Amino acid sequence: MEIKVLGTGCASCKALYETVKQAVAELGIEATVIKEEDLMQIMNYNVMSMPGLVINEKVVSAGKKLSVGDVKAFLTK
């Protein structure tokens, strides 16, 4: 599983990255967590609100602060 946190380095983006890492650890799943800060790459996902969450190349959230529980729900769907 590949998970990308899209964001240009804002506090919300950094927080989501940490939240995703925590959710992955708590679930005990094998996943690569990537923090994508390149605006050109982010635009490829058509995400205009940060932070964005991409799981296996599918945008599942944009512009929202997610809890660990929210992230776990996306990861276990």
Rank of each mutant, 00 (worst) to 15 (best):
A15W: 01
A15V: 01
Y17K: 11
V20P: 02
V20G: 03
V20S: 02
V20N: 05
K21T: 08
Q22Y: 00
A23F: 02
V24Y: 06
V24P: 10
V24C: 09
L27P: 02
L27M: 04
L27K: 05
L27S: 00
G28K: 08
G28T: 03
I29T: 01
I29Y: 01
E30C: 00
E30Y: 04
E30V: 15
A31G: 03
A31P: 06
T32Q: 15
T32F: 09
V33Y: 02
V33F: 08
V33P: 11
I34W: 01
K35I: 00
E36M: 15
E36V: 15
E36Q: 15
E36D: 09
E37Y: 03
E37V: 10
D38H: 09
D38S: 09
L39H: 00
L39A: 07
L39R: 06
L39Q: 10
Q41H: 00
Q41D: 08
Q41T: 14
I42N: 12
M43P: 03
M43Y: 11
N44Q: 15
N44C: 14
N44H: 15
N44A: 14
V47I: 12
V47S: 14
M48C: 03
M48T: 03
S49Q: 07
S49C: 05
M50Y: 14
M50Q: 13
M50H: 12
P51H: 03
G52F: 13
G52N: 13
G52T: 09
L53M: 07
L53A: 07
L53R: 05
V54G: 10
N56I: 07
N56S: 13
K58L: 08
K58G: 08
K58E: 12
V59E: 06
V60F: 12
V60Q: 10
S61K: 04
A62S: 14
A62E: 14
A62K: 10
